[in-house]
Simulated scan of single mutants.
Amino acid sequence: MLVHHDNPARAGMLARMGSLQQAAYTRPIEYQEGRAHGLRAIEVKNGPLRFMSMADRALDIAQIEYRGENLTFLSKPGLNGRNQFDTNGLEAQRSIMGGLFFTCGFENICAPYVTPEGSKYPAGSYPMHGRIRTTPAEHVSSDAYWDGDDRYVLQVSGEMREAELFGENMVLRRSITSVYGEPRITVEDEVTNESFRTEPLMWMYHCNVGWPLLDEGAEVVIPSRKATPRDATTAADGTPWNEIGAPVDNRPESVYLHELVADKDGRGFAGVVNRRLGLGLMIEFDAADFPYFMEWKSMGSGDYVVGLEPSNSSVLGRGWHEERGDLHTLAPQTSERKTLTFTVIEGDEAIDALIARRDALLGA
């Protein structure tokens, strides 16, 4: 059947450029030097929005730019592929890049953990933030296609397997989608327990905002009913959790556990806005999927970043959940799905609308 493409959205674009790759594309790439040598990735350009999905690191999104401005944090080691220290306790910090987000789990999130003697769970040693974030993707695909005549879709997908002989066999299927003309990225994930025993499923998205979006005068926007400091160091931090100051040499990190207020549709959100730049970054999610939400605020020079962390488990760690008896688990041959959306906020009006949305939920 012949289909006529006469919609101005499609025909208008095709009339104005020789190749649509002037405006939008997905493109497999491979880095050539340093710690990133051999690292496979998918570069996605959606008009002014450009990002990299790391095929060798769970398809997590490392770099993201909007109109040439960086939005995320890249840690001191920079981009890096697989390393011998990826999953060695605290040494895993040498391979944490930051990025728009990295996926934490599934046997553990946050601090390294060793199962104590007498535990009802199998013996194990679990690195900081788990192993899934360093797992290379298989069945990787990327595409750019018309969905009808008015939606040009950019999509990346693949599968990651966290598995061990005589141990877990957890499979993450991931799809990352962005539509041309919309400054938005949607991550749709499904985790399946392909083993024959119930497995822990600790699952957190570590979303990271960096300079220049994060700078003195920026604001963290969270509809938080209550913010509880994780520890004494955080409790001693006299700076409000939502205020961003200039970097301070050797300043310790602060971590807050927030009680989020969801909207009437059950949606939760959080973001960082910078009025000087006229930009912000917002994440949205189904609040029921993420009963925990943490804020990582690191104002130290060289480690200047704010992390927004929707999670099904607490930053207090696996041991805390085991002691309480509420460690989240997944039954054999069953699946869980989660969706996370990132949206670039542009202009004073959009920033005002985001803040008004927060204030309405808090009754301000």
Results as ranks from 00 to 15, higher is better:
Gly81Lys: 00
Ser75Cys: 06
Thr103Phe: 00
Gly99Ala: 07
Glu91Val: 06
Glu91Thr: 08
Leu100Glu: 09
Leu79Gly: 03
Tyr66Val: 06
Glu91Phe: 12
Asn70Asp: 12
Thr87Phe: 00
Leu71Asp: 08
Asn70Val: 13
Tyr66Thr: 12
Phe102Asp: 09
Ala92Glu: 03
Leu90Ser: 10
Asn80Asp: 07
Ile96Ala: 12
Thr103Cys: 10
Phe85Leu: 06
Gln93Cys: 00
Tyr66Cys: 10
Glu69Lys: 15
Thr103Arg: 04
Arg94Asn: 11
Gln93Lys: 10
Thr72Pro: 03
Met97His: 01
Thr72Ser: 00
Gly78Arg: 02
Arg82Trp: 04
Gly68Arg: 12
Ser75Asn: 12
Gly98Leu: 02
Glu69Ser: 15
Phe73Glu: 05
Leu74Gln: 08
Tyr66Pro: 05
Leu100Gly: 04
Pro77Gln: 01
Glu69Tyr: 14
Gly98Asp: 06
Phe102Lys: 04
Gln93Ala: 10
Met97Asp: 01
Tyr66Asp: 10
Leu100Trp: 09
Tyr66Ala: 06
Asn80Val: 04
Phe73Lys: 02
Asn80Glu: 09
Pro77Trp: 02
Gly99Lys: 01
Asn83Met: 15
Glu91Met: 11
Asn80Tyr: 03
Lys76Val: 11
Leu90Pro: 09
Arg82Ile: 10
Thr103Ser: 05
Gly89Asn: 00
Ser95Asp: 13
Leu71Gly: 04
Gln93Ile: 13
Phe101His: 07
Gly89Phe: 03
Asn80Gly: 08
Glu65Asp: 15
Asn70Phe: 01
Gln93Gly: 00
Asp86Arg: 01
Phe101Thr: 01
Ile96Glu: 08
Thr87Val: 06
Gln93Ser: 08
Tyr66Asn: 03
Gly78Ala: 01
Asn83Leu: 13
Glu91Tyr: 03
Asn83His: 14
Leu74Asp: 02
Phe101Met: 07
Arg94Trp: 08
Ser75Pro: 06
Leu71Asn: 03
